[in-house]
Nucleic acid binder design. Sequence first.
DNA 1: GAGCACTGC
Length: 702
Amino acid sequence: MPEEADCPPAKRFRPGAGPPSRARPCPPGRRVVMLLNAGGSGGGRRQQPALAHPSTSPYPEAVEQQRRSLPIFQARGQLLAQLRNLDSAILIGETGSGKTTQIQYLYEGGIGRQAVIAVTQPRRVAAISLATRVSDEKRTELGKLVGYTVRFDDVTSDNTKIKFLTDGMLLREAISDSLLRKYSCVILDEAHERTIHTDVLFGVVKAAQRRRKELGKLPLKVIVMSATMDVDLFSQYFNGAPVLYLEGRQHPIQIFYTKQPQQDYLHAALVSVFQIHQEAPCSQDILVFLTGQEEIEAMSRTCRDIAKHLPDGCPSMLVLPLYASLPYAQQLRVFQGAPKGCRKVIIATNIAETSITITGIKYVVDTGMVKAKKYNPDSGLEVLAVQRVSKTQAWQRTGRAGREDSGVCYRLYTEDEFEKFDKMTVPEIQRCNLASVMLQLLAMRVPDVLTFDFMSKPSPEHIQAAIAQLELLGALDRKDDQLTLTPMGRKMAAFPLEPRFAKAILLSPTFHCTEEMLTIVSLLSVDSVLYSPPSRRDEVQSARKKFMASEGDHVTLLNIYRAFRNTGGNKDWCKENFVNSKNMMLVAEVRAQLRDICLKMSMPILSSRGDTERIRRCLAHSLFMNSAELQPDGSYATTDTHQPVAIHPSSALFHCKPACVVYTELLFTNKCYMRDLCVVDAEWLYEAAPDFFRRKMKAARN
DNA sequence: GAGCACTGC
């Protein structure tokens, strides 16, 4: 395809609007405080990335000097004066403002010393690296003054005053103490990402703040930190809390749009990469945003092929795919420098938008597309689909080109198209099943979950669907229109699991299969432990055959886990059997955690000793909402809504035609596929939820 | 008779 490289895409581009730091005006009509800016946006001054920096420095002076060089340092006095007297504040800081690590000023300034200052992060790695960095700056041992808490890892002590934790972790703490009594101050960082946990926390901290005031307890200070200027919603929600702006040190980025809409974004991306490759010095790396593994692998192969046949004098090219399910060792390759005279081209999913920061990127190629979950509240189904990014997301991608120096972003869409993008990504809370969220709120004894004060309210149908699901699982009690948890519901909330999986574990003693259900549920709650490189299909299939169970995928997975344990977690065994050892280790960790919770509840932990019927009965009693039956024509339809479904080709039951199955989830692609199936008796389903099936049969008859 | 974006407890 050499002719593609001959067509210079730059001719189709024209300069567009500047980077966000220039384009954003200050929102009017609110109490706004501009804090002093030290560096000036777009200044050529050297910037140290706040996160990606190694945590230990042999030179304390260097640490201190670097800390002083951050823009926030100059604003320190003003910032403290403001925060000291406020109950709530919104702190906006651009990338590089140093707002997260320097929140230690609060502590230094004597704010929140009465108790612990909590700083939440959407991701584990961020919580850990920030805690490490700040404790280093304070020259203390990690886990003493400064610590962190994430799942499976708690590095805090009684002396810990500044605690970094994942948003999900703080939410879990709120279940046992909804007033968050341990904390004097809660800082919700990266609020613009609007993770489901942060969104629930907005409501939880707001309620805790009000309630503590009413009870005359230690006030709770709430600080919402965000990278975007679009903060009206945040400020309004927290009763008109003032917005404090901190200017950052993002470097200028030149943006180009296409003149015409692109029908084929993959082709456009390919052309752009080679255009840049032929024109720019080879030390400048390229980051391309695509939507998924398949696309990325195909594009990587094409790039390598073309790069082989470029004219003399053209630098060579190192093409690196990057997506979450890529084995860890291969992910790490993106951080290594390319050999001399060679350009690094990273082809990534949106993992490179936030989770992974790569230094040295000069060029970003943004296709404007993303694969994301959409929720249909009518059908209650989640669909994974390729769609347009939001403006916020596009800016985030663009910003990846200006981390160390000025950069360039090629947007493979027109400026008009960009203007029509959604302003913000729809918050996760409006895109997924709310059963877990509702269970957690009920466990916190929120007075009325149906009218809970969400910042962006999910639709009433959406909330009702979750309530209905919890009711079917036996988690809810209705008394005089008041919803409360049953003892079963309360126990379910103790597990870090989807309610139906918690139910499966809690039911397992009845069926004498707790050992097995702990394993199965752990396997289902992490990413797939099976690794299937398409190029080695036959080998994969013959390796899998050994573990295949005629009862279905749950029992097959159980067989694989047992084999893994019998080899003592051997890595070579994993390789031979196409098992992802990293995920398998995680399964073992999850299982240990779940088992601990069972023991604390004094649950007997019994094994079915090879009797798979017990396991299948237990699954029928917890997954009855997801069941399907064989139709006379050989196809399948779901039991409740008679939706046509099919067995996923990856299933152990792909070539079988069982009369009745339960499944873990539906996956929409070309068809509606059931994933992770288990053969059950139709009678068991009826036993599990007679009312549910009676209602459904009645509805079907009418 | 096909194919899973990304987090997190």
